[in-house]
Write a protein that binds this DNA or RNA. Structure first.
Lengths: 244, 244
DNA sequence: GGATTGACAACTGTCGACAGTTTACAGCTT
DNA sequence: AAGCTGTAAACTGTCGACAGTTGTCAATCC
């Protein structure tokens, strides 16, 4: 048997080149290295990554279904641009899914899961006290991820995470504001309380409200009604990221 | 190459072979021609459809992301089997999305849209009176499709339709029961009333309840707690389809 | 007789190449 | 000088072929 010198654990993680390419291009898009509207050439990408065009093509199809790129026949693939209305739609949709997962979790919750949520909450409170914005940002993501994972509905989770990725097309990470963090914190507490108490409908509502407020906090950082939200990044430093 | 002489209109609609293959395989899966658990060979499919393996491969990737097939590295692709719990999850998720779309439509509705919904409703009432089950089945689908289309949230629509397709993996069409139709009819009326009245939250709740009842009507036709729901069809004639 | 091992067959993953289309540019016409 | 047209380059869509892997079956050994 040939020695696999990388990833000795779980040889199954030696995935196909298609997945490798998909992950890499996805990373470049989500980090902004490939700005929205950028035209991608299969040959160029293939040459850049040292693979053939086949895996690149398949990866592009996957990214198209994920909503990260648009493919037009005989023309090529471009990083998707998301309009203002579409961004609002995405926020609402994400909010609905998140509310659903809060509701589901409130029904199926276990003690250990509740403990995890409570831990994250106290950690976030600490981050606010010390003013550690980056830490709060990370914990915020972990808090959401915990709910998404705990709810147990795999398909819902997949859909939700796909939407979050798609939303990276118009959201840039930056500094977060204390004011947002405090409002966000109160909403997190409401969600956690409802889940622990097993009040499913209240948990759903708290989840929906949380993301609706997050949406409004985000929209408030934009110009009144821009036509398109670009991830091209030049002006991104001017904007302040918001937390949910 | 076999002449694909369909769709002579709109040369732009002459899509790539990938899409053609995807549609065909999808059709075969949804109609049950390819039963759940069936192993698909790229070469066989390619030869069967008179194309190369490339488009078939890409089509398989799309179907994987759509949740219709599973792909395991170096082993091949199999039509997905959906377990009992997963089916329930899918129903709940679909219900949430449908409720969201009802809610959204109640906010953005136009007079002409309301008129369409009302028309479908009266047509369905007529179908119940004359006992035309097939007609009611079709109108039921149209009613749902109208709401999904009118709500205006494209991404939500795409997700919803993807889930509906996935649910075909364990639902078989058959005769519908009058009892179901009448219960379903009352729920349709509640949804439509709330939408026309612009009562968004009531519309959402009516939509969720409608699919929850549809889920229960469906589960009631199954054996107590089967491990997997197969679409292989032998026993499908015994089951009676339910309507939402 | 049962388990193991070896080879064979089938299939997937990947690659390079060719044909058709789109796009850009240069030259020509008005 | 502006607009049109024809040509050429680049790129996508598709195909056939090769290498690596997996699963199977039969022969062999305990």
């Amino acid at each position: 048997m040939p020695p696999l010198d990388q990833k000795p654990f779980h040889a199954s993680s030696v995935q196909s080149l298609t997945v490798l390419v998909q992950r890499e291009v996805e990373r470049r898009i989500l980090t902004g290295a490939l700005p929205a509207g950028e035209r991608l050439s299969e040959s160029a990408l293939a040459a850049d990554m040292g693979v053939s065009r086949g895996p690149v093509r398949e990866a592009m199809r996957s990214l198209q279904q994920a909503g990260l790129v648009d493919i037009v026949a005989n023309k090529g693939v471009v990083v998707r641009k998301i309009g203002y209305a579409e961004a609002v739609d995405l926020y609402d949709l994400r909010g609905t899914l998140f509310g659903f997962m809060c509701e589901t979790l409130a029904r199926r919750r276990t003690d250990s899961q509740c403990a995890v949520l409570r831990d994250k909450l106290t950690a976030m409170a600490g981050a606010i006290r010390t003013g550690d914005n980056d830490l709060y940002y990370r914990l915020n993501i972990e808090f959401h991820a915990a709910i998404v994972e705990f709810c147990g509905n795999r398909r819902a989770r997949a859909l939700y995470e796909g939407i979050v990725k798609e939303m990276h097309l118009f959201r840039r990470r930056g500094l977060s504001q204390i004011k947002n963090m405090e409002a966000s914190m109160r909403e997190h507490e409401a969600i956690t309380d409802a889940i622990i108490a097993g009040r499913a409908e209240a948990a759903r509502r708290a989840g929906v409200i949380h993301l609706r407020n997050g949406r409004d906090r985000f929209l408030a950082t934009l110009d009144p009604a821009p036509d398109t939200l670009s991830a091209s990044g030049e002006g991104s430093a001017r904007r302040t990221a918001t937390v949910e």
